[in-house]
């Protein structure tokens, strides 16, 4: 339990650093560390597959691409355009809305009993695979369709208009 509190503290700490660091590259690096703490959370929950997928996909691929783009852009304070006051006001309002929603949802929830999993080994690859491909086959395949449509959309956006070219 103590380990959980330590890791939870670290993940909140690093996610705050993501927001507050000035340099976007530092932000991404802190985000990577945050994801790493999430991986440890998954391991503590005995969800090894999720942990390792989080490790590979988020830390190993997506964040590399984030870093890639940021390094190429080379953002710093000189090149960053000044944000207008309107944007700041909109940002504050949006943030407040999110906060209100979060607080409201937390209030609406009851404090549940300590979670007792019916099957503590559900997070292992074998069990997860069986559940995904038996009970939840349709949602699983539909979500893959979602990814496919996203990919087609990205290709469409990236492709030049043949008439203009």
């Amino acid at each position: 339990m103590n380990l959980f509190y330590l890791i939870a503290f670290l993940s909140i700490f690093f996610s705050l650093l993501v927001i507050f660091s000035k340099n976007p590259v530092y932000s991404v690096l802190y985000l990577i560390v945050t994801f790493f703490t999430f991986t440890i959370h998954y391991i503590l929950l005995n969800a090894q597959f999720l942990a390792i997928v989080n490790f590979i996909v988020y830390m190993g691929a997506i964040m590399v691409l984030f870093l890639f783009v940021l390094m190429l852009l080379n953002l710093n304070q000189d090149s960053e355009p000044m944000k207008s006051n309107l944007i700041k006001v909109v940002g504050v309002i949006a943030g407040m809305c999110l906060l209100v929603t979060l607080v409201g949802s937390v209030k609406a929830l009851n404090v549940s009993d300590p979670v007792v999993l019916k099957n503590p080994d559900i997070g292992l690859v074998k069990n997860l695979g069986k559940v995904l491909f038996n009970e939840f086959l349709l949602p699983f395949e539909v979500s893959s369709l979602l990814l496919l449509s996203a990919m087609v959309g990205a290709v469409l956006l990236a492709k030049k208009d043949p008439k203009k070219a």
Partner: peptide
Amino acid sequence: VGILYIFGVVS
């Protein structure tokens, strides 16, 4: 998940 671990470390 040994293989996946190696995969993650490589990435």
